[in-house]
């Protein structure tokens, strides 16, 4: 815009008033982005609106969209281990999270995706605690057509992880995915157990796990941030999987996690079938949130 454009813009009447900020705040809070993250994002939008002399509410929304996408990209566009040209073999993925988030199902979906792409996959049933957790993973293993290494209920989860890695080595598998029992991040004994599984894996391969994925239920509220913080503190989470995004929840906690912890989202879960996994796309995610 030239000087005249800018001048007209100055005299143009804004088609929004201060209530627009309340509206936008409700969208973000209603999506579980949390008050703090919402305020931080809206502050940025407000500054730009002022600096750029924005008069149209459509433009305010555009700026919000841009800032939301930027927030999700804050962690940086790091390439996940499985997409790197020098991907280690076997590639080891550890999957963690609170109870019922969607870990086991997500593992089945990932196994399906890797297999479809031509990789051989082995799963480790290191949830030896929850009733029939091993059976659940075995059923998935059969459906997807991948091997599952399992021990008896109540067995040491570290030993399962170790055996899975050994099996992968001897059969030259490309990808190993370890399922773990759901645990609330507040239970220090269970978090210690998780650290032990991580150590056992490292004993076999000091560079593993190459990815540690935290599965979050997309319906989770503000507690999700604490989950991400604590699991990261214990075993260094490298990526988030947002499961159950096929409901009406928006999964806005991903903004808080990206903003405060710099952890990227890798996948989204969109159903209960093995095909229902998609790579995370910040643009699509934001657009469905603002829709």
């Amino acid at each position: 815009r030239g000087i005249f454009g800018r001048l007209t813009a100055l005299f143009e009447k804004a088609d929004f008033d201060e209530t627009i900020w309340d509206e936008l705040e409700e969208i973000l809070i209603g999506a579980d982005a949390g008050l703090e993250t919402t305020t931080a994002i809206l502050d940025r939008v407000r500054q730009r609106v002022k600096k750029e002399g924005v008069k149209q509410s459509v433009r305010v929304r555009e700026i919000l969209r841009e800032e939301l996408i930027a927030t999700l990209r804050e962690p940086g566009e790091t390439v996940p281990a499985w997409s790197r040209p020098d991907a280690p073999s076997p590639l080891v993925i550890l999957v963690v999270g609170v109870n019922g988030a969607g870990k086991t199902t997500t593992i089945a979906k990932m196994a399906h995706a890797f297999k479809r792409d031509g990789a051989t996959v082995i799963l480790g049933a290191a949830d030896t605690f929850r009733a029939a957790a091993t059976d659940q993973l075995k059923v998935w293993g059969e459906r997807v057509g991948v091997r599952v290494i399992a021990h008896q209920p109540g067995a040491d989860p570290g030993a399962v992880a170790f055996d899975t890695l050994a099996a992968a080595e001897s059969s030259r598998a490309d990808v190993v995915i370890i399922d773990t029992a759901g645990r609330l991040h507040t239970k220090s004994n269970l978090m210690e157990e998780l650290k032990k599984i991580d150590r056992v894996i490292k004993r076999k391969d000091p560079t593993a796990p190459h990815e540690t994925l935290l599965v979050l239920d997309a319906t989770t509220g503000q507690n999700g941030l604490q989950q991400a913080r604590t699991f990261t503190g214990a075993v260094g989470v490298t990526g988030i999987v947002l499961a159950k995004l096929d409901g009406t929840a928006k999964g806005g906690i991903a903004f808080a996690i990206a903003h405060e912890l710099g952890i990227p989202v890798r996948f989204i879960g969109t159903g209960e079938r093995m095909e229902d996994l998609a790579p995370f796309d910040p643009v699509e995610f934001v657009d469905s949130l603002l829709a």
């Binding site: 999506a31 509220g221 999700g224 009406t248 929840a249």
Partner: peptide, 12 residues
């Protein structure tokens, strides 16, 4: 219902 549920809990 899960105690960790967020804003969408009401809809469900």
């Amino acid at each position: 219902a899960d105690a960790m549920a967020g804003q969408d809990a009401v809809n469900a």
